[in-house]
Design a protein around this nucleic acid. Structure first.
Lengths: 203, 203
DNA sequence: CTACCGCTACCTACCGGTAGGTAGGTGCTG
DNA sequence: CAGCACCTACCTACCGGTAGGTAGCGGTAG
């Protein structure tokens, strides 16, 4: 096996299955047997690849964060300014979440727990980016490009608007008539979010 | 014991402790020993009051829902119309959540799980209210009172904006400098949410 | 008044089941 | 032969739940 099909290696299969399990059942609700069974091996074999449940969880989470940062880097680093840039970042975030709803559900669970099983200090990791974004908005508001608002509250609202749709997808499934993750529903959601923030920000 | 101090009865103490535990650690993450210890009794004594963990959880959740409905009934039933009414409901919801952040965290966990341990079909319970609110908004948009928008998406965004702040409070604690539940922070959040939706709805 | 009854709230001790983790062996591959 | 991936068998800890016993209360019959 080894090298010539890296994405199908047992290790990667375990990581993928673990992400799915942790996202849908949470850390406590997922047993190593569940993950091992999904891959088609026994629990001790899984523990041969990852020393402990906690280590496996951490690695899943670190992959999640680095994927996320990579994906956002382009949009954030773009040379656009003002609303164009905000819309770019908003859409990039939305599409990343749409592609990886399991990531969103895992982050949401981590935000809910925040410190219990201190696998990753999510807040500490995101704080620099949060502060940067806040001061970006404040500068733009000073210049009159955006309507004056509480920048941090705005970011929290954006965070909630983006994440909730995907994290609570199992719930929204029962509230709507179409699957929240169907292409039409996703498109409608994306346009709504963009329109909503445009309305609140453009003078 | 019996009747003359109902709010301090063992039963109520158990319900309160269970709410707190389920909210912060989830259903799987909470053991009956945790709850019993918080009350100062043994697990079998707890099970004497509530036949099983599942029954205890259901009772906690049903109390939550009925509290919630009671609190919102006034605002929804008010004779106000247009934006005034929306603001009234928004503020009533916000204050109820601010008073009961544990409720929010429990609902959020239920929305994340949605159907796993089918304790309560939250979506089915809320759906009538959701549909009612959506058609209210659509009618108001037809009459030109509100800006034309996707009413259901709007409601989901409101749901996310209200809930996320409280459900992810442990996380936001690390992202901000002040406690998200401090009076000043709460006031700032409430005004932001109201202002945000006013901007998006008022023509 | 008291002796007994039935009931509630609590306890200790225990059950079967499952969790995460370890020890040690087997077989394939370079 | 060395090393890796995987296995079976086993461990301890803890889970939800049950069995069975006890202390204390209010009512009531002798």
């Amino acid at each position: 096996m080894s090298e010539f099909d890296p994405q199908l290696s047992t290790r990667h299969q375990i990581l993928a299955e673990a992400l799915s399990c942790f996202a849908s059942a949470g850390y406590e609700g997922t047993s190593l047997n569940d993950i091992a069974a999904g891959v088609g091996i026994r629990r001790p074999s899984l523990l041969h690849h990852f020393g402990s449940k906690e280590l496996l969880y951490q690695e899943v989470f670190e992959n999640l964060l680095s994927d996320w940062f990579d994906r956002l880097a382009d949009a954030i680093g773009s040379l656009e300014t003002g609303w164009i840039k905000v819309e770019l970042v908003l859409r990039a975030g939305f599409r990343f979440f749409a592609d990886n709803p399991n990531y969103v559900r895992m982050v949401r669970r981590e935000a809910l727990d925040a410190g219990d099983h201190m696998a990753v200090d999510l807040a500490a990791v995101l704080r620099p980016m949060f502060d940067l974004a806040a001061s970006y908005f404040e500068r733009a508001m000073d210049e009159g490009i955006f309507v004056r608002q509480d920048a941090r509250q705005l970011l929290i609202t954006g965070y909630g608007a983006l994440l909730s749709y995907f994290s609570d997808e199992p719930f929204l499934e029962g509230l709507l008539d179409v699957s929240p993750l169907s292409p039409e529903a996703l498109a409608a959601r994306e346009e709504h979010v963009v329109a909503f923030f445009r309305a609140a920000l453009i003078p």
